[in-house]
Simulated assay, not measured.
Amino acid sequence: MRRARRRGLAHEAADRIRESILQGTVPPGAPLREVDLATRLDVSRGSVREGLALLERDGLVVSEWHRGARVIELTPTDVDEVYTVRGALERLAAHRAAARVTDARLAELSGLVDALDRALSDDTDAVELLRLDLGFHDLLYEIAANTRLAGAWQALRSPVHLFQLTRIRHCHPHYRRDSVEEHRALVDLLRRREADAAAACAEAHVAASRDALIAMLDTRPSGTGDGLDRLT
């Protein structure tokens, strides 16, 4: 058996670029130029190229021979495809979780919803709101206790993160009005162990996010610049 490789600069580059994308510093559709990134991150172009390949596997980056690498676009088709798959996963996760959830886990879920409610009331930064929101869904998959289901969620999580961040920043009133209520409804159904109703609620929650994102695409302001000047 060969020795495991040490974590290298390619992973470090991928982490830095991923962080900038998921914080909204580098917007959807922005080009990711190897030379610029190598200079800003103080690594070789080879490390940047490998890092971008890792992000492409995560679904955050696309690479085309005539255009180079860029952050994934935010289009109605992209949103529909990602959230259609997400809806199917969340439905299954909620159905399984209803049969497995404990009082302790219900308290954790409720705590996350309460924290999200407080954060929305305090007009907290979008990144923190999203951390609480995705934390709720991460816990739901953990409760569902299916390794392959959790793996499917993790494969989709990065694009969902990027899309939801855009939704919160550009569609905040809708998010404020509906998000806490939808999460609380799901927790209540899990508490009553109503598996079918919880599954339907989870799927409807994802569909509402999809519809909100698609509705805002034609009206959101276009980004300015590629954000690479803030990638360090």
Rank of each mutant, 00 (worst) to 15 (best):
residue 86 R to S: 07
residue 122 D to H: 02
residue 128 E to L: 08
residue 109 L to E: 03
residue 96 R to C: 01
residue 122 D to M: 03
residue 122 D to P: 04
residue 81 E to A: 13
residue 110 S to E: 13
residue 92 L to P: 00
residue 125 D to L: 13
residue 135 G to R: 09
residue 105 R to V: 01
residue 115 A to D: 06
residue 86 R to F: 05
residue 130 L to N: 13
residue 131 R to H: 12
residue 111 G to C: 05
residue 85 V to R: 15
residue 136 F to M: 02
residue 90 E to I: 03
residue 97 A to C: 00
residue 81 E to T: 15
residue 102 T to I: 06
residue 128 E to H: 13
residue 98 A to E: 00
residue 108 E to W: 14
residue 111 G to S: 05
residue 104 A to R: 14
residue 100 R to C: 01
residue 94 A to R: 07
residue 107 A to T: 13
residue 120 L to M: 08
residue 122 D to G: 05
residue 137 H to W: 14
residue 120 L to Y: 11
residue 136 F to H: 13
residue 92 L to M: 10
residue 91 R to Y: 09
residue 87 G to P: 05
residue 97 A to D: 05
residue 101 V to H: 06
residue 128 E to I: 13
residue 101 V to T: 10
residue 92 L to R: 12
residue 85 V to L: 15
residue 82 V to N: 09
residue 102 T to V: 13
residue 103 D to E: 07
residue 104 A to S: 08
residue 132 L to Y: 10
residue 102 T to D: 02
residue 103 D to L: 07
residue 128 E to Y: 14
residue 120 L to V: 14
residue 123 D to H: 11
residue 102 T to P: 02
residue 91 R to V: 09
residue 98 A to S: 07
residue 102 T to W: 15
residue 133 D to V: 09
residue 114 D to W: 00
residue 135 G to H: 12
residue 108 E to T: 15
residue 92 L to K: 11
residue 90 E to H: 15
residue 95 H to I: 13
residue 125 D to F: 09
residue 85 V to H: 12
residue 126 A to I: 03
residue 110 S to M: 05
residue 100 R to F: 04
residue 115 A to H: 04
residue 118 R to Y: 01
residue 136 F to Y: 15
residue 89 L to M: 06
residue 125 D to P: 02
residue 137 H to K: 13
residue 137 H to Y: 11
residue 91 R to L: 06
residue 113 V to T: 08
residue 105 R to F: 06
residue 135 G to Y: 12
residue 113 V to L: 01
residue 109 L to G: 00
residue 119 A to H: 08
residue 126 A to R: 10
residue 134 L to G: 05
residue 90 E to P: 06
residue 87 G to S: 14
residue 90 E to K: 05
residue 116 L to I: 04
residue 107 A to Q: 09
residue 97 A to Q: 13
residue 93 A to P: 01
residue 127 V to F: 11
residue 117 D to N: 04
residue 133 D to H: 15
residue 110 S to F: 02
residue 98 A to L: 07
residue 115 A to L: 08
residue 120 L to I: 06
residue 87 G to A: 11
residue 137 H to M: 04
residue 84 T to Q: 07
residue 119 A to G: 04
residue 89 L to W: 14
residue 102 T to A: 04
residue 109 L to S: 04
residue 128 E to M: 08
residue 93 A to I: 01
residue 133 D to R: 15
residue 110 S to Q: 11
